[in-house]
Amino acid sequence: MSTADTVADKMELTELVARIARAVDRTDRDAIVACYAEKSFDDHGRFRGSGVEFAEYICNSDFTNASPFLYHLLGQSIWDVEGDEAFGETYFDFYMQSEESSLVRSFGRYLDYCQRIDGRWLLTYRRVVMDYRGTHPSTNAPASAGHFEGTRDRNDPVYKRLRWPEHP
């Protein structure tokens, strides 16, 4: 395998991790499922199950639906690619609102095992390693005038492909 192929694989794997995070933040069930191999396992601690079951959990559980937002900020990813298998570690910083006045923040690492299946990298096994979790007091403020607001569904601005500013 050439260096260019290895770099391309690592970029695709890093994007796969980002796509899962975005799909979770937007509670986009189909996009979550599309990132996992048919035979997969996700160990999030609080949740353990297949990629399909993880999508159902994110999109339908009282735990995640109680928060007006889920927010992932991803850090560095390091991948070891061995043919059609890849082992990765990606740092994350995660936020969600647990109550009107509490912000839950956690950071840690995703330890991922991915396989190339039918020419696409898919997540086969994920283990979440939590390095910190805490609850912090917070207050909600309205969005600044003129800003677009994110939503936890397909109405989020990311799904609308803007090419030029819209005019009234």
Rank of each mutant, 00 (worst) to 15 (best):
S2D: 14
S2H: 13
T3D: 05
T3I: 09
D5G: 03
T6I: 14
V7R: 09
V7K: 04
M11E: 12
L13T: 06
L13G: 05
T14H: 04
E15A: 14
V17Y: 06
A18K: 13
R19P: 08
I20E: 10
A21M: 03
R22C: 13
T27A: 15
D28N: 07
D28K: 01
V33M: 08
V33I: 15
A34L: 10
C35W: 07
Y36E: 04
E38Y: 03
E38V: 02
F41I: 07
H44Y: 05
H44F: 05
G45N: 00
R46S: 07
F47E: 06
R48G: 11
R48D: 00
G49S: 09
G49L: 01
G49Q: 00
S50I: 10
S50Y: 03
G51Q: 06
G51C: 05
E53F: 03
Y57S: 13
I58E: 00
C59A: 12
S61K: 00
S61W: 06
F63L: 05
T64W: 01
N65S: 11
A66L: 00
S67H: 06
S67G: 09
P68A: 01
F69W: 09
F69T: 08
L74Y: 12
Q76I: 07
S77G: 04
S77D: 00
W79I: 03
W79P: 00
W79D: 01
V81Q: 04
D84E: 14
A86E: 03
F87E: 05
F87L: 08
G88K: 03
G88N: 01
T90D: 01
Y91C: 09
Y91S: 07
D93C: 02
Y95D: 02
M96K: 09
M96D: 09
S98R: 12
E99P: 06
E100T: 14
E100P: 07
S102W: 10
S102F: 10
V104R: 02
R105K: 01
R105P: 00
S106E: 11
R109S: 04
Y113E: 13
C114W: 04
C114I: 05
R116N: 15
I117S: 02
G119W: 06
R120H: 11
R120V: 00
W121E: 06
L122P: 00
L122I: 10
L123I: 15
T124V: 15
R126C: 04
R126K: 02
R127M: 10
V128E: 07
V129I: 14
V129L: 12
V129T: 08
M130D: 01
M130S: 07
D131Q: 00
Y132S: 11
R133V: 14
R133H: 13
T135K: 12
T139F: 11
T139G: 03
N140K: 15
N140W: 09
A141D: 02
P142D: 13
P142W: 04
A143H: 11
F148R: 15
F148Q: 14
E149A: 11
G150I: 09
R152I: 10
R152S: 13
D153M: 06
D153L: 08
R154H: 08
P157H: 10
Y159L: 07
K160E: 15
L162C: 11
R163S: 15
W164F: 11
W164A: 14
P165M: 11
E166C: 07
P168I: 11
P168E: 15
